[in-house]
Amino acid sequence: MANISTSTNTQNFKVVLLGEGCVGKTSLVLRYVEDKFNSNHISTVQASFLNKKLNIEGKRVNLAIWDTAGQEKFHALGPIYYRSSNGAVLVYDITDEDSFQRIKSWVKELRKMLGTDICLVIVGNKTDLEKDRHVSLEEAETYASKVGALHFQTSAKLNQGIEEMFLTLTQKMLERVAEQETQNNTLTRQNSQRRNVLVVEDDQVPPPPSKHCCGSS
């Protein structure tokens, strides 16, 4: 929703990475953007905010991938992160049942706050540890289809499925944007949309910190 086509014809998307700590969010995005896994060999200073430029069917797309702190104590800060994001990548560890449960709470929250404006992708990471799997593929896939999310299995270590996952997400976001454009041609101002989002917030969720522009006073 926040995509602003600047003078150049680039579509900007904001994608947040959500998921518990140690599920491999950072590895995932580093693998995608830098194609590197071993963190010791990576030149980038930070892996929390990364840009990836894509060209899909002639459309230039710029993905801004926002990493989020996965610790439980920062869970309440989620709304600040995913505010006005176009897509969310929810990562869980296939060897960790808890991380999958955590995903469910994220999905619930996201759907409440952002409705269907946001494209969700649920990602089971660490498929290289298949032998320790604790989250069955069927369970995850049925859940994903139930909440209208895509489901992928990836391995940041083996570089499996990551490219595909981001590509599919981007395509879906492009579709969503096209839908929105046809739907509300009248609402050209993104700010009105921004407000709508915040209205939803006020209704349903513990108020995110008052620094939201429309939230306070």
Binding site: F49, K73, L77, I80, K211
Partner: peptide, 24 residues
């Protein structure tokens, strides 16, 4: 808004907001 929603500045500012919210 375009700058605040995306880009490095936006990301770090969002984090700052998070930090303040956390402190509160």
């Amino acid at each position: 808004d375009s700058r605040l929603m995306q880009g490095e500045g936006g990301y770090y500012f969002t984090n700052l907001c998070c930090a303040v919210s956390f402190i509160e």
